[in-house]
Design a protein around this nucleic acid. Structure first.
Lengths: 177, 177
DNA sequence: TTTGGCATGTAATCCGTTACATGATTAG
DNA sequence: CTAATCATGTAACGGATTACATGCCAAA
């Protein structure tokens, strides 16, 4: 049971989905803190199925080739147990920080270029997160999972803001070297 | 040439080091944004050596079994080129966020437990970062790399503060569910 | 009719950690 | 003397991405 499997169980706890749906949800809603490739998803679905943690659901046809899976009660239990375990910190690996740390050797302007591109990205991200929040609050109003979703979203927002603040400082700091 | 190799080149750009030294530097100074295991370091050193990017340095004996490596001019060039490339964003994978996102299914109190443990950790981290900063400013005063080191340190500090602020909000938010 | 999105899957490969093996040196 | 730390390395394994292969269906 890898974290990947639990991500899948978690998504299926919201509603039955296909591998493709899982990928789309990951890309769209969870992309700011989780990702998963097809090469993980489909084999994991098979394993989870044969372990009895998820089960294929007979779709009310006209759903094309879609193979929908739903969480079983065993799967729900397993997910619950995992949620109770302390999350293990994954070793950090941030390439931007690495480049910054060794920045003295970089060609002139390269580092500030990285920082400015980062700012553009993070500005865009902040806007997107705002969109997602508005969308959640209207379209998912009253959904029992909503408070949890908003809390993770808030983490992303706060993180993004912190990055933006810091990068301003950093650019100023490095300009005056 | 993996990011790991560049991390090693970068460290050797500061001063000649052994594999062991590299590990220690990673653990002590860069641990908040990079990590590396021996299983990566020693094979990488061999590869970098035979590629002519680093070279073994004859240590002025009494350095035990230490095998010191230094950056060659080719290695410096290679590092420089890498520093100029836009850092590629690594896919995010944050287990805590994943657990939070699916938090509704967790046993009562589990999620707030995670958040409180996080706060303890981050408080400690913030103190450590403060120590490191003071140490850098005194022991490395005037070092040409210092501005870059301080900027990465500031990123860690800002990030940590953001996490602490957010986790307070999050705890309050989830208590009043 | 052809392009793009829906949909599932696998094989090759890479990158990395873990666990193990070995031994020297130093401090208590 | 012995425990901790210094020091180097490798083999096995695992988790993940990438690239590929296949085909259906809808809209332009």
């Amino acid at each position: 049971m890898t974290p990947s499997s639990y991500a899948i169980l978690g998504l299926l706890s919201i509603e039955p989905m296909s591998g493709y749906d899982i990928r789309r949800n990951l890309d769209e809603s969870l992309s700011y803190f989780w990702s998963e490739s097809y090469g993980q998803i489909y084999p994991a679905l098979k394993r989870l199925d044969s372990a009895g943690l998820i089960a294929a659901v007979k779709q009310s046809d006209s759903a094309r080739g879609k193979r929908l899976y739903a969480l079983t009660s065993q799967g729900r239990l397993k997910l619950r147990a995992w949620l109770a375990e302390a999350p293990k910190a994954q070793p950090p690996r941030n390439e931007l920080m690495l480049k910054l740390f060794f920045g003295r050797l970089a060609p002139a302007g390269a580092i500030s270029g990285h920082l400015r591109r980062l700012q553009v990205q993070q500005d865009r991200l902040l806007a997107t997160l705002g969109d997602i929040e508005r969308q959640l609050r209207t379209e998912r109003a009253g959904h029992p999972d909503l408070p949890y979703w908003l809390v993770t979203l808030a983490a992303a927002v706060e993180h993004t803001k912190a990055v933006l603040d810091w990068s301003d400082q950093a650019l100023a700091e490095l300009k005056s070297r």
